[in-house]
Design a protein around this nucleic acid. Structure first.
Lengths: 141, 141
DNA sequence: ATAAATTGAATTGCAAACAATTTAAATAAA
DNA sequence: TTTATTTAAATTGTTTGCAATTCAATTTAT
C-alpha cells in the first residue's frame, strides 16, 4: 500500500523546499526570490540569452519565465529586448545593477555550502554523483 | 563566483519538479494534485489527524494546508471537523470515497519506482540513506 | 507565392508555497 | 478573576509552476 515513507519523491520535495527556505534570508537581503536567483545565475554565466535558453537550463517554460522576467525587469536588473532578426525571440540582457548584483550574491548559498562542508567528502561526492545520474536519466514521460 | 552548476540546491529543485511531473498523469486520473496526494498518503496511514499534525509530517503550514484541505473536502474525499474539546483544532477525516481512493492510488509512484528498480540496489540504498541524513540534519534557520 | 506547419513568447486559469497578519480559543500569570 | 500569553487555523497578498491556449513571426511545403 502506498505510504509516505516509501514514496521515492517525497524526500526531494522536502529537500527542495528546505533549500529554498535556507536561501530566503540572504536572497531577501538582495531583493530576489529563489527562482529569480536561478535566472540571475544563468545570466551571470552568459549575458544575452533567449527566454527559451534560460528555460532549457532551468527546466522552466515561458508560462513561468515571462512573468518572472517582467518582475526582474521591473526591479531594473534585466532588460527584455525583442530580437531584430527574429521578432519572436526575446533576449534577456543584464543591466548594470543586475550585473553588479553578482558579487552581493556570493553568500546566498553559504548555509548550504557550510552544511555540506561538515559532511565527509565521500558522502558529498556520492550525493552529487547520484543526483547527476538521477537528473540525467529520469524522465517524467 | 556563484554558478548554477556549483549550486547545491539546484539538483533538488529540478528533481522535485521532475517527480511531481512524473506523478501528474496517474494523479490526474484519480483527480489529485501532487501535494493533495501527499496529504492523502498521510491520512491513509492514520485517519483523523489535526491540520497541524499533517503539516508537521509534510512540513507545510496552515497557509498551504487550509485551502488545499478545503479543495479535498469540496472533492468529497475528506471532512474537516472542528474538535469539540478544543475548538481551535480541526480534525481531518476520510470520507468513504477518500478511503476508497487508496487502492486506486497504488500505481501513482509506479514510474518512479520502476526507474529506481533499474538502478543497482547499492545506488538506491545509498541515495535513500543520504537523503535521510540530509533531511534529518539540514535546517534552514 | 500562398497555404500549412512550426516556433518563441505571452496569456489565462488554477493550485501550491509561504510570509505576515488576524481571529478565536485555551492556558498561564497577575 | 481579569489580563496576558500561547496555540491552532484561517486569511491576505505575492510569486511560482504548469497545462492549455493564443498570437505573431518564421519556415516549410505545395
Amino acid at each position: 500500500m502506498a505510504n509516505l515513507s516509501d514514496d521515492p519523491s517525497f524526500p526531494f520535495y522536502v529537500a527542495s523546499r528546505l533549500f529554498s527556505q535556507a536561501y530566503r534570508e540572504p536572497l531577501d537581503a538582495i531583493g530576489l526570490t529563489y527562482p529569480q536567483y536561478l535566472v540571475m545565475l544563468v545570466l551571470w554565466e552568459k549575458d544575452g540569452q533567449m527566454v527559451s535558453q534560460i528555460g532549457q537550463k532551468l527546466q522552466l517554460d515561458s508560462g513561468t519565465l515571462t512573468p518572472l522576467l517582467k518582475r526582474l525587469e521591473a526591479s531594473n536588473l534585466i532588460k527584455r529586448v525583442r530580437s531584430e532578426e527574429d521578432e519572436r525571440k526575446v533576449v534577456i540582457e543584464l543591466t548594470y545593477p543586475g550585473s553588479s548584483l553578482q558579487s552581493k550574491a556570493a553568500k546566498v548559498a553559504e548555509k548550504a555550502d557550510e552544511f555540506f562542508n561538515n559532511w565527509e567528502e565521500k558522502d558529498v561526492s556520492q550525493l552529487k554523483a547520484i543526483m547527476k545520474k538521477l537528473l540525467a536519466e529520469f524522465n517524467p514521460s
